[in-house]
Amino acid sequence: MTEKIDRAVIQKVIKSVPMLSASANQLLQTTTDPDHDLREIVHIVKTDATLTARVLKVVNSAAFGLINEITSLDRAISYLGERLIVGIAIGDCASQLFDKELKGYEGEHGDLWRHDLRTAIASREVVAQSDLDISPDLAFTAGLLHDIGKALISDYLQGTAGEVLEKIENDEISDYLSAEEELIGFDHPRAGYELALTWKLPEAIAEVIRFHHTPAEAREEFQELVYAVHLGDNIAMMGGCGTGADSMRYKLDADYSRYITLQPNALASIMLTVNEEFVKLERSFAEAGDSNR
């Protein structure tokens, strides 16, 4: 029998993880504003020596195959693009969460980071290849953070995966989301949303975290973005990059077609691009980092 948890428990878990750094927070706020420019990004990164060093390490990693070393931060940032800068900043200061072994989902060490990175790339690609009037960079960042709640509730789900899968196969539970709710009284989107509030993440990102499995429930103004990440998440899982036993055990909301037109061939192209990009980015992050990612 698993123990039920409530908001107070989640809040306590959130308190035990380090806060986002000031620079990561500023980057998130700045890049969410449609009117920002690259100079602001450069300025924020410059104030953070650790982040500066990491950005230069990533851009000079073998995965990017640059012939001449980039030593100027301005050039590094314009080469990598702002989404990767935000990705590096978040990845670094939330590494305790991203690197968590999701035992409750029988996931392996590094699965959450790989799934999130793949979702980020896929969400960006969905936006880039459709007519959505939203920033592909924002879709990337939202994709990176969408599943962060799993790191908060995973420990409470330990030992349940076999039983959940059996119940889903027997139609006793409809999907993994309902299973989380039924077992511990809290699902991972809600847990992630609590974190988003505590970390004061931009509203658009908080909305994605909360509704990425139930995009129709998101506020109208954020629905396009939420649907884009919903698809990105599914594309990542189809690509074999889930977080464990729950992979592919969520429902696709086909109403995405209200915002996003996607022919089968376009989806195939997106999946191809996502795989290529993922292999490259995963390598560059791994080479530049000293964690196990």
Binding site: D175, M238, M248, R249, K251, P264, L267, A268, M271
Partner: peptide, 16 residues
Amino acid sequence: GANVMDTNDTFQIGKR
């Protein structure tokens, strides 16, 4: 060749 739950035709890459 797995598929996500409640998939529509477009997303049935596994089946295709």
